[in-house]
Amino acid sequence: MSRLKKLRKERGFSQIKMQMLTGIDQSDYSKIETGKRSMSFEQCRRVALALETSMDYLAGLTDDPRPYPRSPE
Rank of each mutant, 00 (worst) to 15 (best):
M1G: 15
M1R: 10
L4M: 12
L4N: 04
K5G: 04
K5T: 14
K5S: 15
L7I: 07
L7Q: 01
L7N: 02
L7F: 07
L7G: 02
L7H: 06
L7W: 02
R8S: 03
R8A: 06
K9I: 15
K9P: 00
R11D: 00
G12P: 08
G12I: 11
G12C: 09
G12K: 12
S14N: 06
S14I: 05
Q15A: 05
K17V: 12
M18I: 11
M18K: 09
Q19G: 11
Q19W: 01
Q19V: 00
Q19K: 14
M20T: 12
M20H: 12
M20P: 00
L21A: 09
T22F: 05
G23Y: 07
G23N: 09
S27M: 11
S27I: 15
D28I: 15
Y29H: 08
S30W: 11
S30Y: 10
S30D: 01
K31M: 11
I32V: 15
I32G: 01
E33Q: 03
T34S: 15
G35F: 10
G35Q: 05
R37Y: 09
R37A: 11
R37V: 02
S38Q: 14
S38V: 12
M39R: 09
E42L: 13
E42R: 10
Q43R: 11
Q43E: 15
C44H: 00
R45M: 10
R45W: 06
R46H: 13
R46E: 12
R46L: 13
R46T: 10
A48H: 02
L49V: 12
L49Q: 14
L49I: 13
A50L: 06
A50E: 01
L51Q: 02
E52A: 12
S54Q: 01
M55V: 15
M55C: 15
D56H: 06
D56G: 05
Y57G: 01
L58W: 05
A59W: 10
A59M: 14
G60Y: 08
L61Q: 09
T62V: 10
D64A: 03
D64L: 05
P65W: 05
P65F: 00
P65A: 01
P67I: 01
Y68V: 11
Y68Q: 13
R70F: 09
R70W: 02
P72F: 08
E73M: 09
